[in-house]
Amino acid sequence: MIEFQDASMGYGGGKLFSDVSLDLKPGSFHFLTGPSGAGKTTFLKLCYLELVPTDGRVAIFGQDSRKMSRDDVAVARRRIGVVHQDCRFLDHLPMSENILLPLTVAGRDTAPEMGNLEELLAWVGLSAQADALPPELSGGERQRAALARAVIMAPDVIVADEPTGNVDWDMSLRLLSLLVELNKMGKSVVVATHDMNLIRQAKAQTQTRVLRIRDRTVQQAEVDL
């Protein structure tokens, strides 16, 4: 699904990580850990095509990311739901329209999806906030709304960058349970986090792999590390 083959990523002459080879298979659940500045966000950007590797190859759904046209990238991103740390909503649109936005930009009719939207809002616990503007929501509500937007297109992969970074522990557990639920529905999940407690909680609920960026490479790690 997302395959790294000797992929390296460099900035300004130095390398964040090099010679990364791994395969994020369908239905897998990966955590990505590492100290701040290690390159977790960069790794995720390679996954959702915001960056291409400086060396090596990253293949998304079988396509080499370097060889994809801008339209190919747009179409591939419709199969990847991304939850950004800063959510990236359109602040002038109500939450319901923000969540439906991936359908809108894909040219799909949103009218038949209204039932799904209501279910989705109930699933993330935001039914009462459907008409609220993004700045009116709390950090946790925004993260849950971002998750709802990420899954509205029924993507194959969910990529989340520090989704619990700005929320309390209870909200972190609630977000985690939503991600685990998605994984059990067959979606691949990649979550960048430095919260080891969150990883332990996830391991108790589903089968996960932990990837750690260290010494300029990405290693499979045990949760106790």
């Binding site: 915001e50 801008r70 747009a74 179409v75 991103r77 991304v82 990236r88 936005l101 930009v105």
Partner: peptide, 16 residues
């Protein structure tokens, strides 16, 4: 610019 970035990241094509 931020709106354009957000739209690209959720799969909007340039022409859209």
């Amino acid at each position: 610019a931020q709106i354009i970035d957000a739209l690209r990241l959720i799969g909007a094509r340039d022409v859209y």
